[in-house]
Amino acid sequence: MMADKIAFGKRLVTKEEYFSSGHRACVGCAEALAVRLACKALGPNVIIVNATGCMEVVSSQFPYTAWSVPWIHTLFENTAAVASGVEAGLKTMKRKGRWPGQEPQVVAMAGDGGTSDIGLQALSGALERGHDFLYICFDNEAYMNTGVQRSSATPFGAATTTSPAGKESIGQVTWKKNMPAIAAAHDIPYVATACPSYPFDLMDKVAKGVATPGPAYVHILSVCPTGWRCAPELAVEIGRLAVQTGIFPLYEIEGGQYKLNVKLSKLKPVTEYLKLQGRFGHLSEATIKEIQDRVDREYAKLMEKATAVAGSS
């Protein structure tokens, strides 16, 4: 065994932490976990462009930084555009002989609001232009940093502070925006979904995405105990249930071809996932059935698209 790596079966995981302890993410934050794992997969030869949001705030409070790789944060909605400039800048300097050393990979990171709402235009532009970069969306399904306001990634029925459940409302009344499909519609070479509850699958996809020439997009579901109102120790288990219920399937899209990574012979009922979270606590049986029907339908559609492969992490 190499001293700087830990073996998990045939896999070797670096002991290096590029996202260090001392970050100020909430207790049980699966997004911090996802970032930590993604950084292990990326290694040191990267430049990270981070959107405003939870991860920026918890990782970079002056004069401290959790990052051990070059990292830049500027604004909320422009992450993919900043990454475009980083990529174009360093490629040009390399070509002109003014970039010393190896050319790093460019990685953009943003939350679900920074990706599917306010940052969507910049992301679409960068994907369309074909920049060589990996964009990772850490999706905790609402604007958690500002106090759990709904985004277009918030699931149907979830109560947030701006989609509260009440006498006249079930909470969020729209279905979660299908961001991976939007990314894939740009005909980019690599799109994947991941969840830190499946850590090796996540690290594989990040590594694959960043190694892919051209734009790659990885969408990571990140359980937020604070916003989802669940027990912190369940953060990994709830992510697993999101996958096992078919609510958040793990798949890749390469060259337009869907591939399911965790094949499930039978989906668990969505209630197993919903009941652990306070944000769904108000749902009626009828609404839960509506969610179940929708999940079944969407999963069947995905199965049709996918050439299912055996094995899971």
């Binding site: 422009n78 555009a81 400039g85 490629k91 235009q121 910049a122 532009g125």
Partner: peptide
């Protein structure tokens, strides 16, 4: 040079930030 034909002025200036930050 790299000419980045961005999709908005917001992104134009944002891409400039990124390019300048790597020393271009």
């Amino acid at each position: 040079a790299a000419f980045i034909p961005v999709e908005s002025e917001h992104s134009a200036m944002s891409a400039c930030l990124g390019a300048s930050a790597v020393g271009a």
